[in-house]
């Protein structure tokens, strides 16, 4: 590992973890798109930086033997947005990445940096919760994995403990079906006002749907009860009821992107639009 006046460049995850354990005030830097903006605004003044750029295992997307995928934490949004192998229900992960900011920021930002930052307006969190992704975390004790729904715990807060880092995101093998990510933003490239991520597949018992709402509370909102209503052979009343449940569970803020009340109105509408589109796409295939 090279160290250069406050910038550590570990060559492995173990080295990175050991620096973090030794220097609790050091900050990891991945794409820097958020971290450097915070330094510029004097919101933080890290004692040292730990750059993950030289840790090979964190870069790139690999297919697991079971057909699932491992996205290394340093994988840029650009590379996920260009990933054509995420088909069927997994297409929503590629779509979410392609709607992040603009081409320049997608060249810089990484999936690990984004989810560790856990801004509720980000595009990955709802997409990864709907896709039932697992987050791989490294610490001095080794590796552990958490479902995305347990990784995001509060406003800008994750299940990461001190001296832990995100090493990868694991996606289960795609099912035949549809994965959709819809983002409503004031202008192209802005953070979401509200977003919806949804997967739908069809089987003997009808359709199976998983939906998560983004940017309407501290963490993505996914309700088993709403998913149950949206599965089987749901009609309009089930769809409406699911929208009401999600809106009731939301805890949106008033900000420049919209009032809390506006966001609550958007939730059932965004859900219905995504659901209807997914159902039409599934219908067209069966």
């Amino acid at each position: 590992m090279s160290v250069d006046q406050g910038v550590f460049r570990p060559a492995s995850v173990d080295e990175a973890v050991s620096v973090l354990a030794r220097l609790p005030d050091a900050r990891l830097i991945s794409g820097g798109a958020t971290l450097v903006a915070m330094i510029n605004a004097r919101l933080i003044e890290p004692a040292a930086l730990v750059s993950l750029a030289g840790v090979d295992e964190l870069h790139g997307i690999t297919e697991n033997p079971d057909g699932g995928w491992r996205i290394g934490a340093m994988t840029r949004h650009r590379d996920v947005a260009a990933e054509r192998r995420f088909t069927g229900t997994l297409a929503l992960v590629q779509q979410a990445a392609s709607l992040i900011a603009n081409a320049t920021v997608r060249n810089m930002g990484t999936i690990g940096g984004a989810i560790a930052h856990a801004d509720p307006g980000l595009d990955y969190p709802p997409a990864l919760v709907a896709a039932d992704a697992q987050i791989e975390i490294a610490s001095g004790k080794g590796r552990r994995r958490l479902p995305a729904s347990e990784f995001f715990v509060d406003w800008y807060a994750t299940a990461l403990q001190s001296a832990e880092l995100v090493t990868a995101v694991h996606l289960r093998a795609a099912s035949d079906g549809v994965g959709l990510y819809h983002k409503l933003a004031r202008v192209s490239g802005d953070y979401a006002t509200v977003s919806v991520a949804l997967t739908m597949s069809s089987g003997v018992a009808g359709i199976a749907t998983r939906a998560a709402m983004g940017a309407c509370g501290p963490t993505p909102i996914l309700l088993e009860e709403a998913n149950a209503l949206l599965s089987g052979s749901p009609g309009e009343s089930e769809l409406n009821r699911a929208g009401e449940l999600l809106a009731a569970a939301a805890d949106p803020v008033d900000d420049v992107r919209g009032s809390a009340e506006y966001r609550r109105l958007l939730i059932p509408r965004m859900l219905a639009r995504a659901f209807t589109e997914a159902r039409a796409a599934i219908g067209a295939r069966t």
Binding site: D4, G32, L49, A103
Partner: peptide
């Protein structure tokens, strides 16, 4: 490749 120079640390350019 495009980059924001305001978000890139000079130390990270390599």
């Amino acid at each position: 490749k495009l980059a924001r120079s305001c978000l890139t640390l000079a130390a990270d350019v390599g």
